[in-house]
Amino acid sequence: MLSVRDLEVSFKTFGGEVQAIRGVSFDLYKGETLAVVGESGCGKSVTANTIMGLIPQPPGRIRNGKVLFKNRDLTKLNKRALRDIQGVDISMIFQDPMTALNPTLKIGEQLIEGLRTHHKVSRTEAKRKAVEMLSLVGISNPEERLKQYPHQFSGGMRQRIVIAIALICEPELLIADEPTTALDVTIQAQILELFDEIQRKTGVGIILITHDLGVVAKIADRIAVMYAGKIIEIGNKREIFYNPQHPYTQGLLNSVPRLDLQEEELKPIEGTPPDLFAPPEGCPFAARCPFAMEVCDRVYPATTQLTSQHTVDCWLQDPRAQAVLS
């Protein structure tokens, strides 16, 4: 469905050029959920916004790469062509549902706007579809709810409305940018179950951007681990959780509280991410890695194919590095 190849995105600032995305490649298949995880500032949201065509140019610049959706390179399309895809074939759920909704418009107006713009249906038909979508996302009494404003809904219900807006044109690809970050754990569980139910009913492919590994464990099929603008490891859920190969992935998992290990202490990852104004030539995690070798600072490692779905960028996979591990 989607193929991202060697994507590079930078932003010009007064302090220099920030190299936010530095050669990202991945694929997404129909009906699959791909989770993109990593700490703040690693490039997750920039990747999502680039796919959606929402990078302002300038100050942003797509320096290299392709975003192929149904064999069309989205990076080469003009604004008019992108608008025919945005919200129709590809939709996005943004981080904060309150700022994603217009506080001065009723929910009904915001739901039917995209539908009437892209599909040219009557207002009656659009309202019927809006009621249907609110029911799908679990909002009771949808006919009356259409007449209300965003401030009359709770945080969890606003998030459901944002999901309904994203799905009303029946997209093939849904990008969810940290959709559960501001919600309590009970509402989080409801939203994740909603994603699962919608995917079963519609077959939509989902890119889930998050830093919450608990969310990932719940619904992801495959996981891409990002660090300093690069995908450093990617694999299915079992491979990443039970057989992580990159030291950064291992550090992420070790820093998550576990209820089955009462006496274990959390192990934070020491240090800070590299400066993306002048990113390192070698592995960006080398300065924080307990297994770093001299070559790690100078040369970026080649991608190692561990299984059909599991790849990792790490010098520890080189046969010559076994002496370091032993």
Rank of each mutant, 00 (worst) to 15 (best):
P179S: 14
T180A: 12
T180F: 08
D184Q: 06
D184G: 09
D184F: 09
V185G: 03
T186G: 04
T186S: 15
Q188R: 14
Q188L: 07
A189P: 01
Q190F: 10
I191T: 05
E193H: 10
L194Q: 07
F195Y: 01
E197M: 13
I198L: 13
Q199F: 03
R200I: 04
K201L: 11
G203H: 09
V204R: 03
G205E: 03
G205W: 05
G205H: 06
I206Y: 01
I206V: 15
L208I: 14
I209R: 08
I209W: 11
T210N: 10
H211N: 13
D212P: 09
V216P: 07
K218R: 14
K218W: 01
D221Y: 10
R222G: 02
R222E: 11
I223Y: 10
A224S: 04
M226R: 00
K230C: 02
K230N: 08
E233G: 05
I234M: 14
I234G: 03
N236S: 05
N236T: 04
K237L: 14
R238N: 13
E239G: 06
Y242T: 01
Y242W: 04
N243K: 15
P244V: 05
P244I: 07
H246A: 12
H246P: 12
T249E: 11
L252R: 05
P257Q: 11
R258H: 10
R258G: 02
L259I: 15
D260H: 14
L261D: 07
L261S: 11
E263Q: 09
E263R: 12
E264C: 01
E265R: 14
L266N: 02
K267P: 01
P268K: 00
G271C: 08
G271R: 06
T272R: 13
D275C: 12
D275A: 02
L276A: 02
L276H: 02
A278D: 15
P280C: 09
E281I: 02
G282W: 02
G282H: 02
G282R: 00
C283I: 09
C283E: 07
F285N: 08
F285C: 09
A286V: 00
